[in-house]
C-alpha cells in the first residue's frame, strides 16, 4: 500500500508499557498490560480481544481519562498529563445524556468548546444525514432505538472534527444490516479526513473490514499478543467474503484466540 496515502492530519499515539491496576491494597485488580502502542497520524487501528481483557481501560488510559498505573503515553510527541480534549470518543453503551435531545447531545460539543453555533449545527445536520438519523433530531435518547442511540453518539464524537477518534464497541447495539452500512459510512468518513482512529471491537469482521492494523489482545489482564496489518484495498465492500484474503485474516485472528483459550469448542 502507498505509505503516502496513510499520511493523515490526525494525532500520533505512543504508549510505552502502560499498565492499569484498579483499586489499592487487597482490592487491587490488575486490569491491563503492560502494553505498547504506536499509532501513526491518520492510521486506523483496531484493538480486538475478549470481553473484560482491558480494551475500554486502554482507551481510558490513552485519552487521559483514567490515571496510568505504570508506563507513559505521548500524544503527538507530548507526554499525556491530563485528559485530552482534542478528541472524539464514542463511549461503550453510547453514554448519551437523557435530558438532552439527539441534536442537543451532539451540540454539547459546540456548547462546551464554544465553537460557532451555525457552523456546528450544519456539521451536525450533515452527520445526521450520513448516519441515517434525519427525523430523530428532537427525540430524547429513551425515544430512540439502541442502534440510533449509538449513531447519535458517533455523531457527537465526530461533529467537532477532532484529530483523534476513539470508538469503544460503537456498533455493539446494531443489527447486522446496520452494522455493515455504518461500517462503510465510517470508512468513507475516515477516508475523507484521515484522522487517527483507535477502534475497539470484539468483532473480527469489523476489525478486518475497517483497519490498517489490528492489535489482538489476550485475556485479562490484557496484553497485545499479535499485530496484523490488513492490506486490503479501500473502500472495502459490504460483503467481505468477496476477498479471499479476508478469510485468511479472519482465520489468523480466530487461530490466535483459539490458542489463547478464548474459545472453548
Amino acid at each position: 500500500m502507498d505509505p503516502q496515502k496513510n499520511q493523515g492530519t490526525g494525532a500520533s499515539i505512543v504508549a510505552r508499557d502502560i499498565t492499569k491496576i484498579y483499586g489499592t491494597g487487597p482490592d487491587a485488580f490488575h486490569a491491563l498490560g503492560p502494553i505498547d502502542l504506536d499509532i501513526k497520524p491518520g492510521e486506523f487501528v483496531s484493538l480486538i480481544g475478549p470481553s473484560g481483557c482491558g480494551k475500554s481501560t486502554t482507551m481510558l488510559l490513552v485519552s487521559g481519562l483514567e490515571p496510568i498505573s505504570q508506563g507513559h503515553v505521548e500524544i503527538d510527541g507530548k507526554p499525556l498529563t491530563k485528559p485530552i480534549s482534542e478528541i472524539g470518543i464514542v463511549f461503550q453503551d453510547h453514554l448519551l445524556l437523557d435530558f438532552r435531545t439527539a441534536i442537543q447531545n451532539v451540540m454539547l460539543q459546540q456548547e462546551i468548546r464554544k465553537l460557532d453555533k451555525a457552523d456546528m449545527r450544519s456539521r451536525a445536520d450533515a452527520l445526521f444525514e450520513q448516519l441515517d438519523l434525519v427525523g430523530a433530531e428532537d427525540k430524547y435518547p429513551w425515544q430512540l432505538s439502541g442502534g440510533m442511540r449509538q449513531r447519535v453518539s458517533i455523531a457527537r464524537a465526530l461533529v467537532h472534527d477532532p484529530s483523534m477518534l476513539i470508538m469503544d464497541e460503537p456498533f455493539g447495539a446494531l443489527d447486522a444490516i446496520s452494522r455493515t452500512q455504518i461500517r462503510h459510512d465510517l470508512e468513507m468518513l475516515w477516508l475523507a479526513k484521515r484522522k487517527t482512529v483507535l477502534f475497539i471491537t470484539h468483532s473480527i469482521e469489523e476489525a478486518v473490514g475497517l483497519s490498517d492494523r489490528v492489535l489482538v489482545m489476550s485475556k485479562s489482564p490484557g496484553r497485545i499478543v499479535e499485530e496484523i496489518s490488513i492490506d486490503l484495498p479501500r473502500p472495502r465492500p459490504a460483503h467481505l467474503g468477496e476477498y479471499p484474503e479476508f478469510a485468511v485474516y479472519a482465520k489468523k485472528i480466530y487461530t490466535i484466540f483459539e490458542k489463547l483459550g478464548v474459545y472453548n469448542f
Partner: peptide, 24 residues
Amino acid sequence: RKYYLSKSTGASWLQTFLKIELPS
C-alpha cells in the same frame, strides 16, 4: 462515566456543573 464525557470535551468546572451535573 458522565465525567469521562465532560473531561473529554475539555469542560470547565462550571460547564460540568451546569451542563452535566445539575440537569442529571
